[in-house]
Lab assay of single mutants.
Amino acid sequence: MTYKLISNGKTLKGETTTEAVDAATAEKVFKQYANDNGVDGEWTYDDATKTFTVTE
C-alpha cells in the first residue's frame, strides 16, 4: 500500500510517499525520514487516507 507523509516542519515542508506492508512499517520509514531531515514534532495518522502528518 502507498502511505503519505505531510511534513509541516520549521525547515522542511512538503509531502512524500512510501510503499509499505502496513502503517507501522510506513511510520518507521517516515520517522527515520523526518529524523534525517531534522524534523521533530507531533505526529498524527489518518487511516482513511493512509496519511501521516508531522507538525513542528
Results as ranks from 00 to 15, higher is better:
residue 1 M to N: 13
residue 2 T to N: 06
residue 2 T to G: 04
residue 2 T to W: 12
residue 2 T to A: 06
residue 2 T to Y: 08
residue 2 T to Q: 10
residue 3 Y to E: 04
residue 4 K to T: 14
residue 4 K to A: 05
residue 5 L to Q: 02
residue 5 L to F: 08
residue 5 L to Y: 03
residue 5 L to I: 03
residue 5 L to D: 03
residue 5 L to C: 06
residue 5 L to K: 02
residue 6 I to P: 01
residue 6 I to M: 07
residue 6 I to K: 07
residue 7 S to N: 06
residue 7 S to C: 15
residue 7 S to T: 15
residue 8 N to W: 13
residue 8 N to F: 14
residue 8 N to P: 05
residue 9 G to C: 15
residue 9 G to I: 14
residue 9 G to R: 05
residue 10 K to N: 11
residue 10 K to Y: 09
residue 10 K to A: 11
residue 11 T to G: 12
residue 11 T to I: 12
residue 11 T to H: 13
residue 11 T to F: 13
residue 11 T to N: 12
residue 12 L to N: 07
residue 12 L to F: 14
residue 12 L to H: 12
residue 12 L to M: 10
residue 13 K to M: 12
residue 13 K to W: 11
residue 13 K to F: 11
residue 13 K to A: 10
residue 13 K to L: 12
residue 14 G to S: 13
residue 14 G to Q: 13
residue 14 G to A: 12
residue 14 G to F: 15
residue 16 T to F: 15
residue 16 T to S: 09
residue 17 T to C: 12
residue 17 T to A: 07
residue 17 T to L: 10
residue 17 T to R: 07
residue 17 T to K: 08
residue 18 T to N: 03
residue 18 T to H: 06
residue 18 T to A: 07
residue 19 E to K: 12
residue 19 E to F: 15
residue 19 E to D: 10
residue 19 E to M: 14
residue 19 E to L: 14
residue 20 A to Y: 02
residue 20 A to L: 02
residue 20 A to F: 04
residue 20 A to D: 02
residue 21 V to Y: 12
residue 21 V to I: 13
residue 21 V to F: 11
residue 21 V to L: 13
residue 21 V to N: 10
residue 23 A to Y: 12
residue 23 A to W: 13
residue 23 A to K: 13
residue 24 A to E: 12
residue 24 A to S: 09
residue 24 A to T: 08
residue 24 A to G: 07
residue 25 T to R: 05
residue 25 T to V: 06
residue 25 T to H: 11
residue 25 T to P: 00
residue 26 A to E: 01
residue 26 A to V: 02
residue 27 E to H: 10
residue 27 E to L: 15
residue 27 E to I: 06
residue 27 E to W: 14
residue 28 K to R: 13
residue 28 K to A: 11
residue 28 K to P: 01
residue 28 K to G: 06
residue 29 V to K: 10
residue 29 V to M: 10
residue 29 V to T: 10
residue 31 K to C: 05
residue 31 K to W: 06
residue 31 K to I: 06
residue 32 Q to M: 09
residue 32 Q to Y: 04
residue 32 Q to L: 07
residue 32 Q to S: 08
residue 32 Q to A: 12
residue 33 Y to W: 15
residue 33 Y to C: 04
residue 34 A to S: 04
residue 34 A to Q: 02
residue 34 A to T: 06
residue 34 A to L: 11
residue 35 N to Y: 15
residue 35 N to K: 15
residue 35 N to F: 15
residue 36 D to W: 07
residue 36 D to Y: 07
residue 37 N to I: 11
residue 37 N to P: 01
residue 37 N to G: 04
residue 38 G to C: 08
residue 39 V to K: 03
residue 39 V to N: 03
residue 39 V to H: 04
residue 40 D to Q: 14
residue 40 D to P: 03
residue 40 D to A: 12
residue 41 G to D: 01
residue 41 G to I: 03
residue 42 E to F: 13
residue 42 E to Q: 10
residue 42 E to M: 12
residue 42 E to Y: 13
residue 43 W to A: 01
residue 43 W to L: 03
residue 43 W to K: 01
residue 43 W to S: 00
residue 43 W to M: 04
residue 44 T to A: 09
residue 44 T to K: 09
residue 44 T to H: 11
residue 45 Y to C: 00
residue 45 Y to R: 00
residue 46 D to Y: 04
residue 47 D to Y: 07
residue 47 D to C: 07
residue 47 D to F: 07
residue 48 A to E: 12
residue 48 A to L: 13
residue 48 A to R: 11
residue 49 T to W: 03
residue 49 T to D: 04
residue 49 T to Q: 06
residue 50 K to P: 00
residue 50 K to N: 07
residue 50 K to R: 14
residue 50 K to A: 05
residue 52 F to S: 00
residue 52 F to E: 01
residue 52 F to L: 01
residue 52 F to D: 01
residue 53 T to E: 05
residue 53 T to M: 08
residue 53 T to S: 07
residue 54 V to F: 14
residue 54 V to I: 13
residue 54 V to A: 02
residue 54 V to N: 01
residue 54 V to S: 01
residue 54 V to Q: 01
residue 55 T to K: 07
residue 55 T to V: 09
residue 55 T to N: 09
residue 55 T to I: 10
residue 56 E to P: 10
residue 56 E to T: 09
residue 56 E to M: 09
